[in-house]
Design a protein around this nucleic acid. Sequence first.
DNA 1: GCGTGTTGATATAACGTTATACCAAACTGA
DNA 2: TCAGTTTGGTATAACGTTATATCAACACGC
Lengths: 344, 344
Amino acid sequence: MTKARTSQKVTIVDIAREAQVSTSTVSLVLRKSGRISAETVARVHEVIRKLGYTYNRNAANLRQQKSQLIGLVINDIRNPFFAEVTSGVQQALEGTDVMFFLVDTKDEIDEQDRVCRSLREFGIGGLVIFPVASTRKKFFRDLTADGAPVCVILRNPGDPQTNFVGPDNREAARLATRHLLSLGHRKIAYLGGEAEGQARRERLEGYHLALTEAAIPLETAVDFAGKPDRDTTAGLVARMMSREDPPTAAVCHNDNVAISAMHSLRAIGKEPGRDICIVGIDGIPQGAEVLPGLTTVQMHGAEIGRRAVQLILARMQNPGQPIETVTLHPELIIRGSCGSTAQP
Amino acid sequence: MTKARTSQKVTIVDIAREAQVSTSTVSLVLRKSGRISAETVARVHEVIRKLGYTYNRNAANLRQQKSQLIGLVINDIRNPFFAEVTSGVQQALEGTDVMFFLVDTKDEIDEQDRVCRSLREFGIGGLVIFPVASTRKKFFRDLTADGAPVCVILRNPGDPQTNFVGPDNREAARLATRHLLSLGHRKIAYLGGEAEGQARRERLEGYHLALTEAAIPLETAVDFAGKPDRDTTAGLVARMMSREDPPTAAVCHNDNVAISAMHSLRAIGKEPGRDICIVGIDGIPQGAEVLPGLTTVQMHGAEIGRRAVQLILARMQNPGQPIETVTLHPELIIRGSCGSTAQP
DNA sequence: GCGTGTTGATATAACGTTATACCAAACTGA
DNA sequence: TCAGTTTGGTATAACGTTATATCAACACGC
């Protein structure tokens, strides 16, 4: 038996010496190449166990010029919708030995540049990104030019060169609006969302579409834009309800807005689900925890994360894979925030 | 001008050639060593900009035998409390060029072993871990033996060899219970939490302590254990309220339990905050979004993440740093779930 | 008994960076 | 003037893995 552990780390060189084979052989065993005889494989594994060897992915990555790492760039991990997305990413990575970096842009374009540069330095093999709203097309080009597969989520850059996974925003708002229409509502508002946002534009379109389909003149449509935080939403609700002919229902830009709106309404003496009906969009678990339960449109956050990762993994193995755009279809979830009967 | 970009990647060798210096010099410039003259630094930077060079941390890590990476091992990213912790980690890392891996154990010990092994292969330079409940002490020993600093959070292994950052569970439950006592309650239950959990043991202790301090015989204390999910909690609430002399208030094991309990109560015709008072523990943002607002004890999730990372970063720079145990003191947040007046 | 595979293994040179040791030139002080 | 120091820089050998090319031994067909 040769000496073990003269230095700190055990490397394949140590394993090779101890198992009386070459480092090449050890490397092949580690990668399960199948070109090594069963008994040699067994012997090498035995030595690995005995010496307590840990594979060094850094060295492997450097040599192979690729890495088992993907980046996940999002907005804010505290937003439950992104927690869902992250959870989906996690799930899709289970069983593989790929890990992911989670980075937060705070929706600031400089921060996005910074974190993406940092990810490149770490040599990621793939990237899932929820881009900051003001991202230029050139940015996506640069990302893909880097070689590693990129999948944009939720905000479609509309670039035929980049993979995209996201929900159908227009359809989501249309479903929400149609539900309210089916309950007999005619005066329906669209509440919240940042004015210049792409998601808002698309959702607003679906809202208008549903109204038009129901032969409701768009002149009666009314929308209120604003940051999706509590205070802003409270202001929007106040404005909405102080109109001379206030709406009887509202499609909210997302579930957070919807939940805030429900509180704001109650604060001014209106009971959601009875005095005014509310529909959200996103389908975060918290929607089931408020009272009344939030009727919403499920956007399948976890599934978006999963699909994005699957797409990335597929291209990491086979870079020739064609570009894809995956659109997930939203689904109405009926709870109590629209009451149980029609409320014209 | 020498030729650029014969191969794909630009390396310091390319930079050195183009800037007419050695690779050593480029390396020193990159690391801002200060030993290089201002004009050379400027020239090198100019070339870096021109050739579009990206630093390769893999190579650097391999050479330096250390890495700018830390692992964050948690339970479930969808749990808002862990989203807070993660957010704190993120914040503490801002401005540094350290990145973090987020991995999920699903509270399964095998999964914990698996992910920690994987993290080691990636050569992390530090680890923040919320350990699975059944983790053996040996596990922590092995982690720290690896060389990289480790900080355990939330579940104190009670090992003098490992850093720990967590809240004072006993004090939290004591604060919650005392608040209810101050409102005049005498029959107070402790609701939820996994029976064998350490956190539950500590919180229950605080609950008992507060009762004792108020001269309430412990025979009247009553606690209900169970997984902190909605259905289990509904069952516990049903059991609790069907006692012959039901409690007038409950300290809930955490905010999720508290929110679920509030729903379950309402489902059986009891209004939280009026018919029965509820206090949670954790301080997740969602507690402010339910109605009535959840009175709770803030456990400072984000701060726990921040402190853990600060501790790790400090030891990454100076491994001689002594072991620390940081205990964060909880804070009562009063909202509506205990009503506004005493309810004996 | 001769080419032709096949099987199981190996030697060697990278991958891109940095630690170490070293050096030439310029400055210092007496 | 010269030993000694400082300044600005460099050559070289790692770090731990894997791709490439190569090889010995043996089996196969005929």
